[in-house]
């Protein structure tokens, strides 16, 4: 098998508020023999907020990011659910509407770029499952997480809207009964925890304008994991991670109970099972300490 190679769209948080997510992505890619070409030219995806303000501008900017992946002739891999949503949504709209695509390309032409629609866009979670495979991961595990109950937290934008979400990967995922993260937990030797909130919203996107709503949603998620005896949560989304890891106190106040739960990025969980050094995975960057390694 030839070496797997992707264009990596890091998104903004990986270089700022979740440095551990970038570190663990790189560490895991190295272990798995994946080559990542970082799209250093990429801009922010707009995070669904620029889209509320100026949709056309957001399409142009996302098309530019994808155009760089196309220039490399590579599949674009995202490591943030919301980057995945906005990039894949742009691709979906442009590929379905030649007139819109022409309008966007008219703008891209000004800077010598073109959006063709030749690159696939997938989240790193699905790249691992589709292209490496769960069996291979199982084989490679050197430190199975066998003593841990791990609660998967999927994050909305990897599973909804399901029509869009399922365009990016081969293994179909149901937004009501998602399995990818559970499967990955099991492949890493852990016990996956079933709980009602695993496919629910963390509230990140209204953190500033509706802090109470945001806090209750985060609180419900952590409480759900705690009530089902989880030792930790794991998520593929850095925005969910920010909510669950840094906002547990507010969330606890909002729902009237004390909350504390270590939360791993999906990459950190895989990294630990594959024997990466916890420092290399950035575990020291969590607000809720990860004490079990």
């Amino acid at each position: 098998m030839s070496k797997l190679k992707y264009a990596l769209f890091t998104g903004c948080t990986a270089k700022q508020s979740t440095p551990e997510q970038y570190m663990s992505t790189m560490a895991v890619a190295k272990k798995l023999g994946i080559e990542l070409v970082e799209l250093v030219e990429a801009s922010c995806c707009g995070a669904s907020h620029l889209q509320d303000y100026d949709e056309f501008l957001s399409l142009v900017l996302n098309a530019r990011n994808i155009a760089y992946a196309e220039k490399h002739g590579l599949t674009m891999v995202t490591i943030c659910n919301t980057c995945q949503l906005n990039t894949a949504m742009t691709k979906h709209k442009l590929d379905k509407d030649p007139e819109l695509k022409a309008k966007v390309n008219e703008k891209l032409q000004e800077v010598g770029l073109v959006y063709k629609g030749t690159s696939e866009i997938t989240h790193f979670l699905y790249a691992i499952i589709d292209d490496i495979g769960l069996d291979k991961i199982k084989e490679m595990v050197v430190k199975p997480l066998s003593q841990f109950n791990i609660a998967p937290f999927y994050g909305c934008h990897n599973i909804r809207p399901s029509e869009l979400a399922n365009e990016g990967h081969k293994t179909p995922e149901s937004p009501y009964n998602p399995t990818s993260l559970d499967d990955l937990i099991i492949a890493c030797g852990g016990e996956s925890v079933d709980y009602e909130e695993k496919n629910k919203c963390c509230g990140f996107h209204v953190e500033l304008q509706a802090p109470k709503t945001a806090a209750v949603l985060t609180g419900n998620a952590i409480a759900g994991a705690m009530d089902n005896n989880a030792d930790m949560m794991v998520t593929p989304c850095p925005l969910c991670h920010l909510k669950l890891d840094t906002q547990a106190d507010h969330a606890g106040e909002a729902i009237g109970r004390e909350l504390e739960m270590p939360v791993l990025h999906m990459q950190q969980m895989v990294g630990l099972a594959l024997g990466c050094d916890p420092k290399e995975l950035g575990l020291q960057h969590h607000v809720v300490d990860v004490n079990f390694v």
């Binding site: 440095p19 250093v40 030219e41 801009s43 501008l57 900017l61 703008k107 800077v111």
Partner: peptide
């Protein structure tokens, strides 16, 4: 925990001039 970058450490996209140009022309 090292989760906040100082203003001078915040990254900037490569080929920023393209982005500036597109923001101007596509808004």
């Amino acid at each position: 925990k090292g989760k906040i970058q100082m203003p001078w450490n915040i990254p900037t996209s490569k080929n920023l001039d393209e982005i500036k140009k597109l923001v101007k022309s596509s808004s």
